[in-house]
Structure formats: structure tokens, C-alpha cells
Amino acid sequence: MTDNKPKMDWKPFFWLCIGIIILAAIGGTAIYISGDTPEMLAINYADPYNWYAEGTNPDVGTDVFYLYRDTDISGIKPYAINVDVMVFEVRQSVHDSVMNSISDYPEELNAYIPYYRQVTAYSKASPTPLAAETAEALAYADVKAAFHYYMAAENNGRPYVLAGSGQGAEYISKMIAEWFTTRPAYLKNLHGVYLDGILQDEEDVVILLGTDV
């Protein structure tokens, strides 16, 4: 007797599984499959929830835009390529990092500190270049979006200082390098650049334009 049952085509299921595995490997972060650019996927900084600090002392004359050091918590999402800033434990880690880093900032500074989706240790160690490149592009898009929002909605022509630690220092340096050709107006009121450890040791201060706060 001949079995007339149609044979199951396993190919769609096979490719679906492959896709799920790939997405799991990159931690669920968007890889621009839809055509979105990193800039389109950046955090919305018009929402105060996306700032750790958004103008802590508006009565003073100098602002500081600070990007905190690495706060990767691999135990929460071990295969994520970017840090999820919506997770409570991540936000607590950001708080601890900021408190350890900027406790010596002059009290007269007005702090702006955005949450941003840093590159994770998993992404840095990934053998797949796409994961690391995608993660860094998204993190940097967040940083630029935060600063563009600050300049457009918060700065109002005030003098400001840029500061960064760890990944934050890398992104600060990268932004400044771009501004010389793309946004020279941003340099007008920039009074100083502080990178890695600057709050503890005077010799670590990097002054860009020859003026300190």
C-alpha cells in the first residue's frame, strides 16, 4: 500500500532555526535588517528617563557633559552585544560608576549624563566582526543623539566641558574629531576636555582650547 501523505518540507523550519540562533548570538539587538540606520535606532533623549542627570545645577555658568566608564553586567544578558539601559541593575551600576568617578567634580558644574547602550564584553570578544561593529555603531549613535539633544535643547549658548571615562572617553574623542569638519560651531563654547581619571589627578586633564573651568 502506498503512503500518499505529503512529505514535510523541513527547509523553512531549518532556516528559521538558523535565524533564531543568529539573533540569540547577537543578544537581540537590532542589526538593521529593516534598513534602519544606527541614528534611526538611537535612544530618544527628549525623554528625561533616558538621562541619569539632566542639568543638576542650572544656576551656574558652566555645563559638563559626561559619559561614564564601562558598566557591563554580563550576568543579566550574557549574549547581548549592547548594555540594556532599561534594566534596574544596569542603572544601579551606572549610578555607582558616576558616584565613584565624578565625586570630585567642582560643585559649580551643571551635569548632563545620558544613559547610553555601551558595547558589552561579549561583543568585544565575539569572533564575528559584525556583532562588534553593530554594537559600537549603536552605542556611538546614542552618544551623538544625546549630545545633539543637549546642544539643541539644553545648552543655550553656555560654556561647557566634555568628560569621559572608559568607553565614554573613546566616544568623546571620536565626536570631537568629527566636529572639526562637520560641526565646528560646537567648538565655540567648549572650555575643556577631561578624559579617564581626570577627576583624581590634575596631570590627567586634557585641555583642548587652552582654558580650564
Rank of each mutant, 00 (worst) to 15 (best):
L16M: 12
C17T: 13
I18V: 15
G19H: 04
G19Y: 10
I20E: 13
I21T: 13
I21S: 08
I22V: 15
I22M: 10
L23P: 00
L23C: 12
A24N: 13
A24P: 00
A24H: 12
A25P: 01
A25D: 11
G27D: 06
G28W: 02
Y32W: 13
Y32L: 11
Y32F: 14
Y32A: 05
G35N: 00
T37V: 04
P38I: 10
M40G: 07
L41M: 10
L41E: 10
I43H: 00
N44Q: 09
Y45A: 04
Y45R: 03
A46W: 03
A46N: 12
D47H: 02
Y49V: 08
N50G: 01
W51I: 02
W51P: 01
Y52N: 02
Y52I: 00
A53H: 07
E54D: 14
G55S: 05
G55C: 05
G55M: 09
T56H: 00
T56N: 09
T56M: 06
T56C: 03
T56G: 10
N57K: 14
N57C: 06
N57Q: 06
P58N: 11
V60G: 13
G61M: 10
T62M: 09
D63W: 03
V64G: 03
V64Y: 12
V64D: 08
F65R: 04
F65V: 01
L67R: 09
L67F: 15
L67T: 02
Y68S: 02
R69G: 15
D70Q: 08
T71A: 08
T71R: 06
D72P: 11
D72T: 06
I73T: 07
S74T: 12
S74A: 12
S74D: 04
I76K: 01
I76F: 05
P78F: 04
Y79A: 10
A80D: 07
I81D: 04
I81M: 11
N82M: 05
N82F: 09
V83G: 01
V83T: 08
V83K: 02
V85E: 01
M86D: 05
V87Q: 10
V87E: 15
V87I: 13
V87H: 14
R91D: 00
R91K: 08
Q92S: 15
S93W: 06
H95L: 13
S97F: 08
V98N: 03
V98M: 15
N100W: 09
S101L: 10
S101M: 04
S101H: 07
I102T: 14
S103K: 14
S103W: 15
D104V: 07
D104R: 14
E107F: 12
E107T: 15
E108W: 05
E108S: 11
L109I: 02
L109F: 08
I113A: 05
I113F: 04
Y115R: 03
R117Y: 01
Q118Y: 00
V119H: 00
V119S: 00
T120A: 04
T120E: 07
T120I: 07
T120Y: 06
Y122V: 06
Y122W: 13
S123G: 14
S123R: 09
K124C: 10
A125C: 10
A125V: 07
P127W: 12
P127R: 12
P127V: 06
